[in-house]
Design a binder for these strands. Structure first.
Length: 359
DNA sequence: CCTTCGGCTCGTCAGGTTTA
DNA sequence: TAAACCTGACGAGCCGAAGG
């Protein structure tokens, strides 16, 4: 199997797994509907549903009518989950649409002929509603709003973002650069430079540099008072004005405007970003001063880099949510299996009680 | 040791959805 | 309605296991 083929195989498996989970809830759902609705399944709790275990009063459950039944589920990962009343028994299939509408699927037309035509009309509306699964964030937030054990995804930032280096968590900078080592450098005009290292801890990777403008410097010229050492041992400063300042190990030039030689100061060179810039570094021209095609191109490149960076972060976040979503589905499977087992046991008990003894 | 395979992660693109 | 956001799809790269 080719690598590309394997990828498709994996994705197909993921989709298939989701559909299998759907079928566990109600096999009567048409495939086309079930697939689109797979993401809308919602863990029902005692809050708005009748707890199943309370109704059937499974022996040993210790739950009374009206109080949420709590089920302890041991997940394959060893995690123990407390789950309250998972599904509703009166309805064969209750599926939440993105708008949280309760929709009964597949049994409506069969059970009520008078509502058949209406159902057919509504069917298309429902198909429209369900044609696209909502985002994992929405799904998980709906799940976690009812289930205490499920962590909720924060709208703005998760706990991870609080510690992980994330350029999005910074104050909106004037310019954002990325170095060849993967560091993100945000320069807020007249304020501080922030360096974020994606590969390290957020606190450690974030460094603030103070910038001061003395007198009336040339356009774009900025004195960098401090900078960090890059991976290859050289120090690199980035200043507005489409130039990059690279530490020079041989020559002795002052970093400040390259004007004077100072004995103890490290030396630097100003290089054109197009020639000497490390791979991946994109410089930004100050907005409003774009005239030449080169500046326009630089601005376009900068915007592209910014967009790619945001999309990169979005993709990471999306994958994280997807993982969480899959975990939720797996937990749900475990819960349903436990419920199913208990119901079967209850059925056997009732059979023993009410079946006439012939012998 | 080398090759192949399977699994996983990541970056990017495209297109749909949401938001201001 | 444009911008921002979200996510499926795709390709690339890395890593460990298995087999020759």
């Amino acid at each position: 199997m080719s690598k590309c083929g394997r990828k498709k195989y994996i994705k197909t498996n993921l989709r298939q797994m989701t559909m299998e989970i759907d079928s566990q809830q109600d096999g009567s759902i048409p495939d086309s509907v079930a697939e689109s609705e797979s993401a809308h399944m919602q863990m029902q709790t005692g809050q708005n549903s009748i707890p199943t275990l309370a109704q059937v009063s499974v022996a040993g459950s210790g739950t009374g009518r009206g109080s949420p039944a709590v089920t302890l589920v041991q997940l394959p990962s060893g995690q123990t989950v407390h789950v309250q009343g998972v599904f509703q028994t009166p309805q064969p299939s209750v599926i939440q649409s993105p708008q949280l509408q309760t929709v009964q699927v597949a049994t409506i037309a069969e059970t009520d002929e008078s509502a058949e035509s209406e159902s057919v009309i509504d069917f298309h509306k429902r198909r429209e509603i369900l044609s696209r699964r909502p985002s994992y964030r929405k799904i998980l937030n709906e799940l976690s709003s009812d289930v205490p054990g499920v962590p909720k995804i924060e709208e703005e930032k998760s706990e991870e973002e609080g510690t992980s280096p994330n350029i999005a968590a910074m104050a909106v900078p004037t310019s954002i650069y990325q170095t060849s080592t993967g560091q993100y450098i945000a320069i807020a005009q007249g304020e501080a430079i922030q360096i974020s290292n994606p590969g390290s801890d957020g606190v450690q990777g974030l460094q603030a540099l103070t910038m001061t403008n003395s007198g009336a410097p040339p356009p774009g010229a900025t004195i960098v008072q401090y900078a960090t050492q890059s991976a290859d041992g050289t120090q690199q400063f980035f200043v507005p004005g489409s130039q990059v300042v690279v530490q020079d190990e041989e020559t002795e030039l002052a970093p400040s405007h390259m004007a004077a030689t100072t004995g103890d100061m490290p030396t630097y060179q100003i290089r054109a970003p197009t020639t000497a810039l490390p791979q991946g570094v994109v410089m930004a021209a100050s907005p409003g001063s774009l005239h030449s095609p080169q500046q326009l191109a630089e601005e376009a490149t900068r915007k592209r880099e910014l967009r790619l960076m945001k999309n990169r972060e979005a993709a990471k976040e999306c994958r994280r949510r997807k993982k969480e979503y899959v975990k939720c589905l797996e937990s749900r499977v475990a819960v349903l299996e436990v419920q199913n087992k208990k119901l079967i046991e209850e059925l056997e008990t009732l059979k023993d009680i009410y079946s006439p003894k012939t012998d």
